[in-house]
Measured scan of single mutants.
Amino acid sequence: TFTSIVTTNPDFGGFEFYVEAGQQFDDSAYEEAYGVSVPSAVVEEMNAKAAQLKDGEWLNVSHE
Rank of each mutant, 00 (worst) to 15 (best):
28 S>M: 13
8 T>R: 13
53 L>V: 00
16 E>F: 15
4 S>I: 07
52 Q>F: 08
38 V>H: 00
25 F>R: 00
30 Y>D: 01
16 E>Q: 13
1 T>M: 13
31 E>M: 12
37 S>N: 09
62 S>M: 12
58 W>E: 02
55 D>E: 14
52 Q>W: 06
1 T>A: 11
12 F>S: 06
5 I>H: 14
64 E>Q: 14
33 A>C: 14
22 G>R: 02
54 K>E: 08
39 P>M: 01
49 K>G: 07
34 Y>R: 06
42 V>K: 03
35 G>R: 06
4 S>Q: 03
3 T>K: 10
64 E>C: 13
42 V>R: 00
47 N>D: 07
24 Q>W: 12
61 V>A: 01
60 N>W: 15
26 D>P: 04
46 M>S: 02
53 L>G: 02
60 N>M: 15
17 F>E: 01
39 P>R: 00
17 F>H: 04
52 Q>A: 13
46 M>H: 02
46 M>T: 04
3 T>S: 11
7 T>D: 04
14 G>V: 07
43 V>G: 04
48 A>T: 09
18 Y>H: 06
11 D>S: 09
47 N>S: 07
61 V>R: 00
25 F>E: 03
42 V>Q: 03
6 V>H: 03
50 A>P: 08
46 M>A: 05
54 K>R: 11
25 F>A: 03
3 T>N: 10
57 E>T: 05
11 D>I: 13
17 F>D: 01
41 A>S: 13
35 G>W: 04
45 E>N: 06
47 N>L: 03
1 T>P: 08
12 F>Y: 07
23 Q>Y: 10
21 A>R: 07
48 A>R: 13
58 W>K: 03
8 T>K: 11
63 H>W: 11
29 A>T: 05
48 A>K: 13
17 F>Q: 03
37 S>C: 12
36 V>L: 08
34 Y>F: 14
27 D>F: 15
37 S>H: 14
11 D>K: 11
63 H>A: 03
8 T>M: 11
41 A>T: 11
28 S>C: 14
27 D>M: 12
15 F>M: 12
2 F>N: 04
44 E>R: 09
34 Y>M: 08
64 E>M: 14
45 E>V: 09
7 T>C: 06
46 M>L: 15
32 E>I: 13
30 Y>N: 01
10 P>R: 06
35 G>F: 05
23 Q>I: 04
23 Q>F: 10
52 Q>I: 08
36 V>Q: 05
21 A>K: 10
40 S>N: 10
18 Y>E: 01
13 G>F: 09
33 A>E: 07
20 E>L: 05
51 A>M: 11
7 T>F: 03
19 V>I: 12
62 S>W: 15
20 E>T: 09
50 A>C: 09
1 T>D: 07
24 Q>A: 12
63 H>L: 06
22 G>Y: 07
42 V>H: 00
53 L>C: 06
55 D>M: 08
54 K>A: 09
41 A>R: 11
59 L>I: 04
22 G>M: 05
33 A>K: 15
37 S>E: 10
61 V>N: 00
44 E>T: 09
35 G>T: 03
27 D>V: 15
9 N>L: 09
28 S>K: 15
13 G>E: 13
41 A>G: 09
51 A>N: 09
19 V>K: 00
20 E>A: 14
32 E>T: 10
8 T>F: 06
48 A>L: 13
44 E>Y: 07
4 S>G: 12
38 V>R: 00
22 G>P: 01
55 D>P: 15
30 Y>F: 13
56 G>Q: 03
24 Q>K: 13
62 S>D: 05
8 T>A: 08
53 L>F: 00
48 A>S: 10
64 E>H: 14
16 E>W: 14
64 E>N: 14
56 G>W: 02
15 F>G: 15
11 D>W: 11
9 N>A: 11
59 L>W: 00
63 H>E: 02
40 S>M: 11
44 E>H: 10
11 D>F: 11
28 S>F: 12
19 V>A: 00
44 E>V: 10
54 K>V: 08
30 Y>H: 01
50 A>Q: 03
57 E>Q: 10
62 S>E: 02
38 V>I: 08
28 S>Y: 11
36 V>T: 06
33 A>V: 10
40 S>A: 14
43 V>S: 06
31 E>A: 12
40 S>C: 13
2 F>V: 03
18 Y>A: 01
28 S>W: 11
21 A>Y: 12
47 N>W: 03
16 E>H: 15
14 G>W: 07
29 A>E: 07
47 N>I: 05
39 P>L: 04
53 L>Y: 04
21 A>P: 07
43 V>T: 09
63 H>S: 05
19 V>D: 03
